[in-house]
Computed example of a mutant assay.
Amino acid sequence: MSASLDLKPEILKLFAFTQKIRHELAAIRKPGSDEDRFNSMSQELDAIVEATEVATNAILESVEAIDALAQEIRAMAPDNKPMTNKLDAIGDKIGTVFEACSFQDITGQRVSKVVTSLKFIDEKLNTMVSLWGKDELARLSKEISEESGKSGDAALLNGPQLKGKGVSQDDIDRLFD
């Protein structure tokens, strides 16, 4: 009989620990809600990669155009040594820009690793959600949301919207027509 009394505090600690895990899980994953934070994070990271790629391509196209213009100027005055020296300096800077733009590929690779990790964590969380039950976690999630009490400006701050999400410029224009 005393052995079962010795186990009681340990069982209570284990129960308290699992309750804490359930609350933390409910705070991360809100069952029944449209919000999927891990999917949202993956989309945000994909948007970063896409925006970086677009910006890098614009930079590279502009630098290529500058290089072409510099070559045209060089052809106009091949014997002008001071101008040729300046055009060589422009060519060196163009090379530096091309090298610096290689960051985009590395950034994309690193972000892809993060997205893969997020998907792994998401799968594990989905397993935990199914073990504890969506209804219970939804109840806990609602309690946590009510406790956090986001209101005012804090409730409005969502950062830049993903492409196709949020209010479009056309929607805003229609409001003013």
Rank of each mutant, 00 (worst) to 15 (best):
A155H: 04
L45A: 09
I21F: 15
L5R: 12
F103G: 07
N80F: 11
I21E: 15
Q71T: 12
A51D: 10
V115Y: 01
G32F: 01
V111E: 00
E50Q: 14
L60R: 05
S112D: 11
R22N: 09
R110C: 00
T96G: 07
K86L: 15
A55V: 14
E61P: 06
G108Q: 10
L7D: 03
N57G: 14
S40D: 03
K113V: 15
I28S: 13
F15K: 13
M128V: 13
I106Q: 03
L140N: 04
A77L: 15
F15C: 10
D122S: 08
N80E: 14
D105Q: 02
K134R: 12
S168N: 12
D88Y: 00
I172F: 05
L14C: 06
T52N: 06
N158A: 08
S168D: 09
S117R: 15
L5I: 09
V129R: 11
L118W: 03
I48L: 06
E24N: 08
I106Y: 01
G32T: 10
I73C: 01
E61Q: 15
D79R: 06
K13H: 07
T107Y: 10
A155F: 02
L131P: 02
L60Y: 11
E64D: 14
I121V: 11
Q109L: 00
K13F: 07
D170Q: 10
R139D: 13
A100T: 04
V54G: 03
L118R: 02
A65H: 01
K142F: 09
A70P: 12
V129D: 11
L157P: 09
I121C: 03
E53D: 08
G152E: 00
N57L: 07
Q161V: 05
I21C: 06
M83H: 09
K30I: 04
E146P: 03
E147W: 14
S117V: 11
G149I: 01
A100W: 04
K93P: 01
N126A: 05
E147H: 12
K165F: 03
C101G: 13
G95W: 01
K165Y: 09
G159H: 08
D92T: 13
D135E: 10
P78M: 00
D173Y: 02
K81H: 10
D34I: 04
L118Q: 08
K165S: 08
D88V: 02
F120G: 02
D67H: 13
A75C: 01
D34P: 14
E44P: 00
H23T: 08
L12G: 12
D171R: 05
N158G: 13
S117G: 15
P160W: 14
T52L: 09
A155G: 14
Q161S: 13
Q71D: 09
Q161F: 09
D46Q: 04
S33C: 05
K86M: 06
D122E: 13
R37C: 14
I48R: 02
K81M: 11
E136I: 11
E50M: 11
A27W: 05
K163Y: 03
